[in-house]
Design a protein around this nucleic acid. Structure first.
Lengths: 233, 233
DNA sequence: TTAATTAGTGTTAAAATTACACTAAGAGTG
DNA sequence: CACTCTTAGTGTAATTTTAACACTAATTAA
């Protein structure tokens, strides 16, 4: 490595990487996106999509790039989760990982097995394979994070289709929070926030009363937020 | 840098550093600990205590070490805040900083101006000097974080003396949250959680009714937490 | 002795949360 | 076509939580 900068510090540097915890929802379980590794270490083992940070990209840009390269998913809004820096977290050498998470709709993306990747698949959180590195720990923390966040931010809408029924939204909240929610109270609360647009459309071909579709009203949310409104479930 | 590991990746690496946002409380304002830099860049300017991560320490260990080396403060529990990785955040070269924050009692520590440091001082948040790097942004985020956290974790007790009065605790919450709180409702709520030990001791030499001292009951908190209790202000 | 200052204490009204059960609509079946 | 199955959709009352509010007690200083 070049060292011609008079300020540059002299110590050996940890390598820097980013890992992505991508949550998806398919109506039932909450899922997480994993890739089967093509190379050592942990060759043929499942792991989070992740890779090294280039010198001219931010860690967030890196996370998005890697996600795209390895799984085909792009244009997702990721948020920083945590930076993991335990000395031995990677068997090769010292690697510090800045992790990110995102919530997406499983149906909206076509998965590919990209660079250094044998397979890319959704796994239910209740049925994860054994993971390489400290990735089980990272997923655990990401899950904790969204469980907390869901209460005071309207996340979760990203995991559904543009149009969704209130029951689907409730199922999502139940999946994330791992609790049962009362249908009437839930609807009262959500509709009371005036963040949903009621659409004229209804479900079709369902063997029961068709549910009305709603969509998330981003504009209303923005306006309310500017007026000091706080989302709270 | 040595490169004899067959797995080691080939790209140039960002340097890795840690910065510390240390909040203190002296009964009035909420304060933050700053150091005046002895060296370029930002020589003679104020900045957060920070420095480079050694290859054999975690970023958290680094933060604690740097804090001790530069300010004399040690034995504080820091929590990770965020990792800043904008390309140009340091004028020297690409440096990624993992930032940490902590809450301490200003009276409990004697400040020194340690390595590469001309002065170490507490600054009221309402009266910060111009800061080097992106440190103003880091402080802003740290403040946001503790404002959120204070509502669901009994942090803040760290900023007071072991023994404190309920009025002092209230003032602290008012300083962090920047709101006025009703005295009776505050006392009702805090005492209702049974996390405070009522001591026999009272204030002395105050020109008004002497207030009772309380201390935080860590044991009770631990036990309650294990029973599923959630602190909530 | 008086003035100044902060500690300490309860009640009531309003708002938010919780618990709870029936009718409506659509598709499938015999 | 009537019956069954399934999920959508709806309101009320009891309970709990929150918010608003004012006086007496204790101590020092003047």
């Amino acid at each position: 490595m070049k060292n011609n900068n008079k300020y540059q510090y002299e110590y050996p540097r940890p390598a820097l990487a980013s890992d992505c915890v991508i949550f998806g929802f398919d109506g039932g379980d909450l899922k997480v996106l994993l890739t089967e590794r093509e190379k050592e270490p942990f060759k043929n083992k499942w792991a989070l999509p992740g890779g090294f940070v280039f010198i001219e990209e931010t860690t967030e840009e890196c996370a998005k790039r890697i996600l795209h390269e390895k799984t085909g998913i792009k244009n997702v809004f990721v948020e920083q989760l945590f930076t993991f820096s335990e000395i031995d977290r990677d068997p090769r050498e010292r690697i510090v990982s800045v992790s990110y998470y995102a919530l997406v709709n499983t149906y909206q993306y076509e998965l590919i097995a990209g660079r250094d990747t044998l397979k890319t698949e959704w796994f239910a959180l209740s049925d994860l394979p054994k993971l390489g590195f400290d990735h089980a720990k990272i997923i655990k923390m990401a899950l904790q994070r969204i469980k907390g966040k869901v209460n005071y931010q309207p996340i979760g809408f990203e995991l559904l289709n543009e149009k969704f029924t209130l029951s689907q939204l409730q199922q999502l909240y139940e999946a994330i929070l791992e609790v049962q929610i009362d249908k009437r109270n839930f609807r009262k609360k959500i509709l009371g926030m005036a963040l949903l647009k009621e659409l004229d459309e209804k479900e079709k071909n369902v063997a029961h009363k068709a549910a009305r579709f709603y969509s998330f009203d981003k504009k209303a949310y923005k306006e309310l937020t500017q007026k000091g409104f706080y989302f709270e479930l």
